[in-house]
Amino acid sequence: MHTEKEILFIAWESPEGGYEAHSPGHSIFTQADDFEELRAMVHDAVSCHFEEDERPSIIRLHLVKDELIVV
């Protein structure tokens, strides 16, 4: 069993309002109305995606602004 040490999420403001986040290399997407809620949703998404003994111990959430997002 291989456990990743950390996982990265790229977050951006949604054109419809709120925020969206995606983890490159994983099929994990989430969204929320505000950034604090997005942080909670990212933790929830990681908990749902990985078994407890396989979860990364570090979650990085990087907010990008005014950049081209390619996912």
Rank of each mutant, 00 (worst) to 15 (best):
A21E: 05
A21V: 00
E37H: 04
R55E: 03
D34W: 00
S27W: 07
I10Y: 15
C48R: 12
S27K: 11
S47K: 12
D33C: 11
V64F: 05
E13R: 14
Q31T: 08
F29K: 12
P15N: 02
L68A: 05
Q31C: 08
F29E: 11
C48P: 06
T3S: 15
S27T: 08
R39A: 05
A11N: 02
K65C: 07
Y19A: 02
S27N: 12
E36M: 09
L8K: 12
W12P: 09
T3E: 13
E6I: 00
K65V: 04
L61C: 03
A21H: 06
F50W: 12
W12N: 00
A11M: 01
T30H: 09
V70T: 13
M41E: 10
R55G: 03
E4W: 05
H26G: 02
I58W: 00
F35Q: 01
R55A: 11
R60F: 06
G25T: 02
E16F: 07
E36Y: 06
S47G: 12
I69F: 01
E20A: 01
E51P: 14
E67N: 03
L61W: 00
V64I: 15
I28Y: 08
E4M: 15
I28A: 04
K65E: 06
F50C: 10
V46C: 10
M41F: 07
L61Q: 00
P56E: 04
V42L: 13
I69E: 02
I69D: 00
V70P: 15
L68F: 03
I10C: 09
G18K: 08
S14P: 05
I69Y: 02
M1T: 02
R60V: 06
H26Y: 12
E16P: 08
F9N: 02
E4A: 12
Y19L: 02
I69K: 00
R60C: 09
E4Y: 08
E20K: 04
R39M: 06
A45G: 10
R60A: 04
S14H: 07
E37D: 13
I59V: 14
L8P: 10
G17P: 15
F35I: 01
L61D: 00
V46N: 07
D66E: 08
W12C: 01
I28S: 07
S47F: 05
V71W: 03
A32H: 04
L38I: 01
G17C: 14
E51K: 13
A45N: 10
V46P: 05
E16A: 14
E37R: 07
Y19H: 04
